[in-house]
Design a binder for these strands. Structure first.
Lengths: 193, 193
DNA sequence: TCCTTTTTTGAATGTTCGTTCAAGATACTC
DNA sequence: GAGTATCTTGAACGAACATTCAAAAAAGGA
């Protein structure tokens, strides 16, 4: 017997970053070897192939994002405040250059969408879960009286998500903090109103 | 002497579609040969290499989009009506499955951003031009009294563009016409208000 | 009609890619 | 502490890729 030496979470986060930086197709096994510290053989032993590594990285990404989501929404009593904090964090992520400025889900969706139905489905499911999570928060905010009871939480969640997608794309060409903050602020206002 | 046989615009539009469908990295020269009808040698003769073809396709895309923009904004007297028509057209594009559902600019931006500064610059410039064009239309709508004079046209243009980016991304996972139309409608309302 | 010039053609090239595999290393079991 | 099962290693593999090139074709000028 012998157990695997590497830390699976660490490896997957490294792979995540590599894929986010260069995209799936442009990330070679050599890049992945450098990023993860794993030799090709080990990657194939643990994840079957490059695509398997992407799927595992997507799952890790989901877990990380879910944990982050819950962290944000246990911060304050007021759900709308937490929404604003979440949005501000997206802006901060967009601004910080060392980070990838992109979401692995949307980035991979753009790239592997037409060609790999299973990956498309995984991403689509992940995004739906996020949307559902936001819908619940909007519902909560309605109960707290910060959002009109007549509004449709599902619609608000979709619109909010759409705004964040757009914000991330916009930031890729114009990563000016002032502008991004202004856009996020307006998105927040429009959702609240 | 001998002139080139192929129709440059047709070839570039074919290449555009190929790149939009599969992305730059995943579109092989064989794919491009099939799409354009040009043999590898001819492509290299006319565009230097695959990257040169992408640059030429991006330029053709810009010209086509610019023409489309002007067509939309010469439709009616009221600028805000034309804005709505433009937005509805985006939704229609997103829904139609045969089309690529994506914008070559944002798709390529997502893919080749980190690795090719020149292409990033070209795309960034194109999107800035589009943003500027929208800003002028918002300025016009202010003069026509459909948008409050206190609003900042530049900001509105950015927000509108951001919304369209988001809409396109959203459509990739949930291409339901009803939902997309609802999102577009809200975006339009938020910009107008 | 013939010559020149340019384009078209598609096979050949060298490179890089994802993937495999056999040998060596390592930790657990008894 | 020996045996064994599993993981690690990195060189080797074929396939696919972008690119090149020399020969063939075709169009214009004389």
């Amino acid at each position: 017997m012998r157990n695997a030496e590497f830390d699976k979470e660490k490896v997957l986060r490294s792979a995540m970053n590599a894929f986010m930086n260069k995209g799936f197709a442009n990330t070679s096994m050599q890049d992945l070897k450098k990023a993860t510290g794993l030799h090709p053989g080990s990657i194939y032993c643990a994840f079957e192939n490059k695509r398997g590594l992407l799927l595992a990285a997507l799952e890790q990404y989901r877990l990380d994002r879910q944990a982050e989501f819950e962290r944000f929404f246990s911060a304050s009593q007021r759900t709308t405040d937490n929404l604003k904090l979440y949005l501000d964090n997206v802006v901060t992520e967009c601004i910080s250059c060392d980070n990838t400025q992109a979401c692995l889900l949307t980035k991979t969706l753009n790239e592997a969408a037409e060609q790999d139905i299973e990956i498309q489905q995984v991403i689509s499911d992940n995004l739906s879960m996020l949307q559902q999570a936001f819908a619940e928060k909007f519902e909560q905010a309605k109960k707290e009286g910060d959002i009109s009871a007549q509004k449709d939480s599902e619609h608000l969640a979709r619109y909010f998500l759409m705004g964040m997608y757009g914000l991330r794309t916009f930031a890729q060409t114009h990563p000016e903090p002032r502008v991004l903050k202004q856009l996020a602020e307006q998105l927040y206002q429009d959702v609240l109103r």
